[in-house]
Every structure is written in structure tokens, then in C-alpha cells.
């Protein structure tokens, strides 16, 4: 493991994602990735009597499924890095409460999956154990009531707004020799472009995605054409456009290899999600349900996963503060190349 420029890390000995699992709500499982999730809820409440418990249930199911696939008992998991969008990360805390696993709570808003994965990789790469899990979730209803309005309230969403995904993803990082591999990571910097509209998260985060992608490419000496896919999450329509414009100004064209988790999870026209999906669980679930399997079977070879987060609270938004963004990157490969 080697520290490169900026917040970049290179894993000389790549790590393996030995198992992964995903969960999704009914709307998410009705989208383009239908049928790819390990668990798909039939109703948003997932049989629970509060939205917070519904979100915790996503975490419990995803983690349970991932360690089952990895053939691990909870006691064999050395560390769990996990987080969600709720205050004090209660979705994760209550979801993992009964597993009795060493728990490291992570908050990176919607960038949490990449942040958790990077931390898990660093721990395993340092020789601190054999299995570290990264888990992230979000739930439309628990997020709505915390950040916006009650679910039954009849407010109209603006065209730039994004739909918080009811979804979760879990990946177990191990020092094994099986694809998909993690070969690098970049921790991003807090980037505030002065966007104040909390109904336009993509715009608030696109600047951070630009910074992290630029830093990662420069530190690792790579070019967008070296990747099959540069996957941001979740910039949506607006943020993706801004990101491409920003990179274009530097003479970098990513349009052939770029896609966004917020655009992959939903059918934008049919499912009426306006500018796309968002929420910490969106990129986590898209990664674990769609991207990691494709890396595992060799359909994708090299992927840069850049999860983006908006580091605001409902309170700072009311106080008129702008929305700082952050993005963390993880580089995946299907083969180890030396």
C-alpha cells in the first residue's frame, strides 16, 4: 500500500471483494436493474412500523446476505465500516446491533459506500484482519421526513430534484486472489461550489466529483480511455452534465465511458424520478447489484467508482448555507496486471 499525491492510495497487492450483496425497495426493483438485487422488498415499509426500522432492516438483510455468500459467521468479520443518511447513522446502528461485529460508523452522505470501501481496503491491506465489510443504505421515506416533507404531503418536486433510493449494498474486502479486485482509492476534498438549492444535489456534488476524478487520474497516471467505466454516484442528469462540462474544459472527454448510478437505477421517464436517483444506498446498490458482478465475470475490466455526497444537514440548509460536496473514488479491476 502506497500513498500517492492528493488523497490517493495505491494497493500494490490488490485486494479482493470476496462477496457482495444488495437490497432494494419495490420502486428500485421495478427499474432497469430489476431482478439483480439479492433482496427486493415488496413494500417500502418492509414489514416494520417505522421508516427508520425499515431502513435498518435493509442493512440487516444486506449484511446477512453478504456474509452468507462469503461463508462467514459474523464473528469472522474483523471490521464493519458502515453508514447511512439518518441523524447519528441510526439506520446502520440499529441494523447491525444484533450481529456483535466490530463496528466503525462512517458518515459521507451519499459518498459513504466508497468511503467505507476505501477504509476497509486500507485496513485489510495493512494486515489488520481477513475480512472487512463496507455497508451503506438509504430509504426514501426516512430521508424525506428528515430532510424534506412528510411522505403524504402534496408538494411538487422540481425538475432538478433527485429521488432518494430505498436500497442498500454490502461488500466484503479480503486479501484473496479472486476478482473483482480493488487496486486504488482516492479520498476526496470537501468542495463547495456555492450551490444552495437542496433540490439540486447533483449540481452541489459535481464539483467534488471533478476534483476527485482529476486527482485520481493524475495520482495513478491514468486517462479516462484506460477505463471501461467511470461510474459516478449520484450526480443525476444535472450533475453528470456539469461534470462532463468541467472535464471538457481541461480537454478531458469522459462521455464515452461515463455513467451515473442515479441514472442506472431508475427508468427516468417511466418512473418519474426527475433528474435521477440519489441517496447513499443508490450507488451502494448499483455497485453491488450490477457493477461488481460484471467485474467478477469479466464483462467489465477496469472501473473507477466515484461516489459523491452532499455534506449538508436540514439545519444548515435552513440557515442559508451552501451545500459542500465530497467524492471518494475506488478503482476496481477484473484481473491483476503486473
Amino acid at each position: 500500500m502506497k500513498k500517492l499525491s492528493g488523497g490517493s492510495i495505491w494497493f500494490e497487492t490488490p485486494l479482493s471483494v470476496s462477496a457482495f450483496a444488495s437490497a432494494a425497495g419495490p420502486k428500485e426493483n421495478d427499474g432497469p436493474l430489476s431482478g439483480k438485487f439479492d433482496f427486493a422488498a415488496e413494500e417500502p415499509c418492509i414489514g416494520e412500523d417505522s421508516w427508520e426500522k425499515s431502513e435498518s432492516s435493509l442493512i440487516t438483510k444486506t449484511f446477512g446476505k453478504a456474509i452468507e455468500k462469503a461463508r462467514l459467521a459474523p464473528s469472522e468479520v474483523d471490521f464493519v465500516f458502515a453508514g447511512d443518511l439518518l441523524n447519528q447513522c441510526v439506520g446502520t446502528v440499529f441494523g447491525l446491533r444484533d450481529f456483535k461485529v466490530p463496528f466503525i460508523g462512517v458518515y459521507g452522505a451519499c459518498s459513504t459506500m466508497a468511503e467505507s470501501l476505501a477504509l476497509a481496503s486500507v485496513f485489510i491491506s495493512s494486515g489488520l484482519g481477513q475480512n472487512a465489510a463496507a455497508i451503506t443504505s438509504s430509504h426514501f421515506c426516512s430521508a424525506e421526513r428528515q430532510f424534506r416533507m412528510p411522505v403524504n404531503y402534496g408538494g411538487q418536486r422540481t425538475p432538478t430534484s433527485q429521488w432518494t433510493a430505498t436500497a442498500a449494498g454490502c461488500a466484503v474486502v479480503s486479501p484473496k486472489a479472486q476478482p473483482p479486485y480493488i487496486t486504488g482509492a482516492t479520498f476526496g476534498t470537501i468542495t463547495d461550489m456555492g450551490v444552495k438549492d437542496s433540490a439540486n444535489m447533483g449540481a452541489a456534488m459535481a464539483g467534488a466529483a471533478y476534483e476527485t476524478i482529476t486527482a485520481h487520474l493524475s495520482a495513478h497516471g491514468t486517462h479516462p480511455r484506460d477505463y471501461d467505466l467511470i461510474l459516478t454516484g449520484d450526480l443525476g442528469v444535472v450533475g453528470s452534465g456539469i461534470l462532463r462540462d468541467l472535464l471538457h474544459k481541461d480537454g478531458v472527454d469522459i462521455s464515452n465511458v461515463h455513467n451515473d448510478c442515479g441514472l442506472l437505477l431508475y427508468d427516468l421517464e417511466r418512473q418519474d424520478v426527475h433528474a435521477g436517483g440519489s441517496g447513499a444506498g443508490c450507488s451502494a446498490a448499483v455497485l453491488c447489484a450490477d457493477i461488481l458482478p460484471k467485474l467478477q465475470c469479466g464483462e467489465l475490466h477496469r472501473v473507477l467508482f466515484v461516489a459523491t455526497g452532499a455534506l449538508m444537514s436540514a439545519m444548515t440548509a435552513q440557515q442559508g448555507e451552501s451545500i459542500p460536496g465530497i467524492a471518494h473514488a475506488i478503482e476496481f479491476t477484473s484481473k491483476v496486471t503486473n
Binding site: 411538487q156 422540481t158 425538475p159 432538478t160 468542495t191 461550489m193 456555492g194 450551490v195 439540486n200 449540481a203 464539483g207 471533478y210 476534483e211 442528469v237 444535472v238 452534465g241 456539469i242 462540462d245 468541467l246 474544459k249 481541461d250 433528474a275
Partner: peptide
Amino acid sequence: MNVTKKEYEELNKSRSPKSKLQKTL
């Protein structure tokens, strides 16, 4: 960052879809 906040705002504006007044009104 390769643009100022002002230039970023312009980019944001050009990329943000407007409400379709002919439908909403």
C-alpha cells in the same frame, strides 16, 4: 477547480431543466 463559482453557476443553469410551464400551468 478550473472554474469560478460564478462560471459554475452558469454551467449549472445551462444544465438544469426548467419547469415545463405549458404543462404545469
